[in-house]
Design a protein around this nucleic acid. Structure first.
Length: 591
RNA sequence: GCACCCAUAGCUCAGCUGGAUAGAGCAACUGCCUUCUAAGCAGUAGGUCAUAGGUUCGAAUCCUAUUGGGUGUACCA
């Protein structure tokens, strides 16, 4: 379908040849501001050199031409240098009659047709439960994957689990020392929380030791390095790397506890994965790339044997890629993992959903891949997002100043329950229906709250203030969805003799919003931004609610008008469903 | 020190590749439920778009500097 914008643009180009004998590039069109008459606006200031006339006169001439030569343009007006064009209602009703009868297809994008993209997200450590920061990551990653799917991509959702290293050894050590064999079963604690408890226990004991050592006259730095607990944890890591049986057994057991816990949280968040990577499998990868880099002259070696890359010409400094003892660092394994992923999936694009504290890391990573001549380097993208902070500052697992993901979801459920029961519209729903309703509304509120803000921005979360359920929120959207559902359930089938030829403002506004769906979905796919979808669907819903409030639908006596409004209701519902799917927000049939 | 990100109403956020009098929601105040779900709709009030320059016919948007907040810059991950 040719968009109305490009129809107008073509006619404007024709107008310039016809009126001024000048060729112009595709002119930019804007949406007309609501306080003016019209649908699209051409700003004529940039063209004054070509027209040789003043702004009003130029606009007037072009407007006249369009009105006469472009059937979609029903009228125009000129204010200063702004040419406001009104699109004929017949165009909008025709759109409602045709494309909106299959909204879900209409809204789908094609930019990803035939392309494969990997989205890596979540990527947790296995020494502690998920917190609000992880929630943002998971929702963002999942939503972006969904958005890309909607744009036609084949999407592989990947999770690279950081299952090895000093942090998990700390939890293991603390559990061995203080745990008395405690298990998730014996403590009836979720496995990830149990392991997290020992991570905190380690830190407390470690601090204690550090303090002790400092009182014997050691500096803080020395004390931190010499604390027996840390040395033991490091020893445990060495044993793990050596493949010590008992150590591996404990490691496997405790990791499994964590996975069992994560499974529950993931399920509740509504996220899933197609492929899991484990750092215990990948942490040795990448060394062959180091050799390749040396051979190609991309890397250089110092006398002590360490290998570096000089990226100072890109303001990225010099970066170590291999230690002098020959062991790899974080970026080494990331290089290797990138290769492995590409070999396995042959993607066109690869997206890493990782917090903005790693901006530098990914710049370096991508630059190295580019310098090594990796064909896929161009398709790499770091979807960087801001931290979720508390009024007191950063969340710190070790210090217990975190908003726990499971607790928060419980909290959301509770609030949703309170509000729902207070409104008292739930008669006829049984226990199971009610619980699923509370869960959907609570999660809808949480997800919309986190996804509606631009990923680049940090989010301030105040645990003392509950997340809103009114206004620009998930529950507001869900409510509108439920209301439309109910309306359509009561709707008779109406036969149309002719679609209306003129529209009410509320109808036209809604249609224009619905019309924009493909553009918004495409933009969200290009920018990897669920926020665009969230803000868009809010606009759609607002315009629908205005129509719902101001105009009657089922009681409309003119069948043609009634049919149009029902069609718009269906289309709104379908558009919402599509957006909800992309955001991972559950739909609610009744609330 | 150097690099990157952010700064819009009391609070939380929109504002597309520069365009008309900067928009929502929350909180405050005011209307609207014998009519399709009031988790709704409508209205009032609230802004020197951090500051100062610059580019432009035109800047919240682009450039430079400054201030404030965050992050990174480890032979940690």
């Amino acid at each position: 379908m040719t968009s109305i914008e490009s129809i107008l643009q073509q006619h404007i180009q024709k107008a310039f040849t016809a009126l001024f004998q000048k060729e112009i590039e595709e002119p930019k069109l804007e949406k007309t501001k609501p306080e003016f008459e019209g649908d699209f606006t051409l700003v004529v200031f940039p063209f004054l050199r070509l027209t040789g006339k003043g702004p009003e006169q130029s606009a007037e001439t072009i407007g006249q031409y369009l009105k006469e030569n472009c059937e979609e343009v029903s009228d125009f007006n000129v204010i200063k240098g702004f040419l406001n064009l009104s699109i004929a209602d017949s165009f909008w009703t025709n759109f409602a009659a045709t494309a909106l009868s299959r909204t879900a297809d209409f809204a789908k994008g094609q930019i990803g047709e035939g392309k494969k993209v990997m989205v890596e997200y979540s990527s947790p450590n296995t020494n502690k439960p998920l917190h609000l920061g992880h929630v943002r990551n998971n929702l963002l990653g999942y939503s972006v994957a969904r958005i890309l799917e909607y744009n036609g991509y084949e999407v592989i959702k990947a999770n690279l689990i950081n299952d090895r290293g000093i942090h998990i050894c700390k939890s293991m050590l603390a559990w061995e020392k203080f745990g008395n064999g405690e298990t998730p079963e014996s403590s009836s604690m979720k496995g990830d929380h149990l392991v997290g408890k020992y991570y905190v226990a380690f830190d407390q004991a470690y601090r204690e030791e550090t303090k002790q050592l400092m009182s014997t006259g050691l500096s803080e730095e020395e004390a931190k390095k010499q604390a027996p607990l840390l040395l033991e944890a490091q020893e445990l890591l060495r044993k793990w790397e050596a493949g010590d049986e008992a150590t591996i057994a404990t490691w496997k057991k405790m990791n499994q506890w964590v996975y069992d816990g994560f499974d529950v949280s993931y399920k509740r968040l509504g996220v899933d994965f197609d492929k899991f990577y484990y750092e215990s499998d990948t942490y040795l990868l990448g060394k062959d790339l180091v050799q390749e880099g040396l051979d190609k002259g991309v890397f250089y070696q110092k006398e002590d044997g360490s290998v570096w890359i000089d990226l100072s010409e890109y303001k990225l400094d010099q970066k170590l890629v291999l230690r002098s003892d020959g062991t790899s660092v974080y970026i080494t394994q990331d290089l290797g993992t990138a290769d492995q992923k590409f070999e396995e999936f042959g993607f066109d694009q690869s997206i890493y959903v990782v917090g903005n504290e790693q901006d530098y890391h990914f710049k370096v990573l991508f630059k190295i891949l580019e310098k090594l001549g990796r064909p896929y380097a161009e398709g790499m993208y770091h979807l960087s997002y801001g931290m979720v902070d508390l009024p007191s500052g950063k969340m710190k697992s070790r210090e217990g100043t975190v908003v726990d993901a499971d607790d928060l979801m419980d909290e959301m459920f509770k609030t949703a329950k309170e509000i729902t029961l207070e409104l008292g519209k739930t008669e006829g729903l049984d226990e199971a229906d009610l619980n699923s309703l509370f869960e959907s509304v609570g999660m809808g509120a949480l997800k919309y709250f986190l996804l509606k803000v631009d990923p680049a921005k940090r989010i301030l979360f105040d645990p003392k203030e509950t997340i809103d359920f009114q206004g620009n929120t998930g529950p507001f959207l869900q409510y509108t969805y439920a209301r439309i559902t109910s309306l359509l359930q009561n709707a008779p089938s109406v036969s149309v003799t002719a679609w209306p030829t003129s529209l009410e403002t509320q109808e036209r506004d809604l249609i224009k919003n619905l019309y924009a769906a493909p553009q918004v979905i495409e933009a969200a796919g290009k920018q990897y931004s669920p926020a665009l979808i969230a803000n868009y669907i809010y606009d759609v819903v607002k315009s629908y609610n205005r129509l719902y409030h101001d105009l009657s639908i089922l009681k409309e006596t003119d069948d043609n008008k009634k049919a149009l409004r029902l069609r718009l209701s269906e289309a709104t519902r379908e558009t919402m469903k599509a957006c909800f799917t992309m955001l991972g927000i559950p739909v609610v049939e009744r609330m």
